[in-house]
Design a protein around this nucleic acid. Structure first.
Lengths: 210, 210
DNA sequence: CGCCGAAACGGGGTAAAGTCCGTTTACGTC
DNA sequence: GACGTAAACGGACTTTACCCCGTTTCGGCG
């Protein structure tokens, strides 16, 4: 009995063709990014390659950045799950300072592996988009700072600045010429991740020292 | 005797009309920003209001962001003079840690007062432009970190992260709804500057504690 | 099975950044 | 003062994000 006599609110279901088209577009976008690079993914080209109209693309994602946001969201969700309910020290259970360090290491890696998409997910105007930037990092850092019970005068502001220290370099200030090859963790091609992770750890240890 | 027989290199002088047009464009841009807001300043509108062709605008400044860079450069230069040769604690002569704190306070204020222009000075593609972002802050922080002779393992990376903590919030991560009114320091309308400045001081004091 | 309203689709239209190239102008030289 | 050249100018052209609205399709209901 799943057809209530009083269907409350608008049907939360998306029309079947719409859902299918969303998937088609996301897959096509992923393919084009891998093949041509993120900044070659134009709305026209994406629509044509997906066999859909340009209007459809905008209806689904609102803006160009919206496509990349949607692409990130799936992976971001998995990342957040690990942080919120995974094993320690990243997940709950460990000492807050250790979690802070582990979080920064994981986040650095996550952003570096996806920096091309993450950068493309920024809107050109308006504020920082949801699902990018410190919108998840900041509250998490804020919480751990509170749990650590350091004698910090203004943890709210400090968490913003720490989130910025963490995400600024991989997202914004170091993006000149990272190799496009995404996820390989092989031959030490980017010790950049290690440098940033170690720097973060130093920062956190110094801030947390009582 | 200022006409050498062997004029070395290309004449370093800009043609008179070019220099004049640059000034006209910068003034017009300033007026339009004050009057309409930075994101209403389009290349077409700027050219028309200045009474020049669009090609001229692009010849002078390269990109739209270039205009805002040029606008910032003048003020940035005065700021940098104060840092490099002004009175302590901002200028040389004071304890490095005190200079670091003073620098962050001054920089925060500087960026908040100009955040609209500074934000518009970012290019949408390519790396972070010169004259914006941590391109001045980072080396300065790096130098002071070195002078302070703390036992930091990797001051190069740490200076990047500190620069990001300093500039990220006013430039990028907090830009949702700052009041457009720029420079008034009057009725405490933005204690935001004070919060960020105090947060920076906390951060630096903790990092520098030996 | 056929109807109907709402949602999705499509592609042409607009605005604004950035490019190109033929024309004009500054300015050093004779 | 006339001339030649290199630089600057101007505006038409191209590209791309984003909007609009007439048309089509979905899917629930009688």
């Amino acid at each position: 009995m799943d057809s209530p006599l009083v269907p409350f609110g608008p049907p939360p279901t998306e029309r079947a063709d719409a859902a299918r088209n969303r998937e088609v577009l996301l897959c096509t976008a992923r393919a084009m990014i891998a093949e041509l690079g993120a900044d070659q993914v134009t709305m026209d080209a994406l629509a044509e390659r997906a066999g859909l109209g340009k209007g459809t693309v905008f209806r689904r994602f609102g803006t160009r950045a919206g496509i990349f946001r949607a692409l990130l969201d799936a992976e971001e969700q998995r990342f957040q799950c690990q942080v919120l309910s995974g094993p320690p020290p990243l997940g709950p259970g460990a000492d807050p300072v250790d979690r802070l360090i582990a979080y920064g290491r994981a986040r650095t890696r996550f952003l570096l592996e996806r920096h091309e998409i993450a950068r493309a997910a920024f809107e050109r105007k308006g504020p920082v988009p949801p699902a990018v930037g410190p919108n998840f990092s900041r509250p998490h850092i804020r919480m751990l700072l509170g749990q650590a019970a350091l004698g910090l005068p203004d943890p709210d502001t400090l968490s913003l600045q720490l989130a910025s220290a963490l995400e600024g370099p991989p997202l914004l200030f170091l993006v000149a010429d990272l190799p496009p090859g995404g996820e390989s963790a092989g031959c030490g091609e980017n010790d950049l991740g290690a440098l940033l992770a170690d720097g973060w750890q130093t920062l956190v240890e110094r801030v947390a020292r009582r």
